[in-house]
Design a protein around this nucleic acid. Sequence first.
DNA 1: GGTGTGACCAGCT
DNA 2: AAGCTGGCCACAC
Length: 103
Amino acid sequence: MQVYALVRQIPFGKVTSYGAIAAFLGSRQSSRMVGWAMNQSHRSRLNIPAHRVVNRNGQLTGKNHFGHPDLMQQLLEQEGHQIENDTIVNFEKAFWNPEQTLL
DNA sequence: GGTGTGACCAGCT
DNA sequence: AAGCTGGCCACAC
């Protein structure tokens, strides 16, 4: 729920991490639930940019749960990111902190 | 209805 | 430095 709301807030060309979302919404340790939420996100009527959510290393851990394993990478590249070995280059620079905008 | 398992993360061997 | 463990909570079996 809140996860969806937050993920939808992620601006174009930015990415964030499961941990950041979890930490912002409640407990940092609930990050697994965020991942679960993302898994269910495709059911939602709202289109959730799940590709903008990666793990703390910028690694595209959830790409297998997209239609095609490479789809996530394609989408990110489409948004101007550079992907190298399933990891976003300059992840720290592209990182979007929820507190930064929503606080 | 108990158990196991995550698109994670941090802390401890 | 790499691997294991615990924590969180929803869901399938």
